[in-house]
Amino acid sequence: MANNGDNNAYWAANKRIIGISLVIWFVVSFGFGILLRPVLSGIAIGGTDLGFWFAQQGSILVFLVLIFVYAAKMNKLDKEHGVDE
C-alpha cells in the first residue's frame, strides 16, 4: 500500500493531466468552434471556414484523442505510483 505522501503526489499529477486536457477541450470547442471563429474565418475548408468545421466535426475528433491519451497517461501514472490493479 502506497503511503499518504505518495497518494498526494499521484493526485496532484492526475489533476495536472486533467488541467492540460481540459484546456485543449475548451480551446477546440468553445474556442475554435465559437469564440475564435471570426479569427479563423480566413482559413477556407470545403466551402466554409475552419471554425465551422471545428464546431461540427473537428472538436469531436479532438475529444476522442483526448480521452484515449488521458487513459494511457493515467495507466502509466498508476504504475509509477504503485496504485494500479
Binding site: L22, G33, A55, Q56, Q57, S59, I60, F63, L66, I67
Partner: peptide, 10 residues
C-alpha cells in the same frame, strides 16, 4: 448539439 452531446464524455 454536436459539441455538447459529445464533449460531456471528456
Amino acid at each position: 448539439y454536436l459539441m455538447g452531446w459529445t464533449g460531456g464524455y471528456v
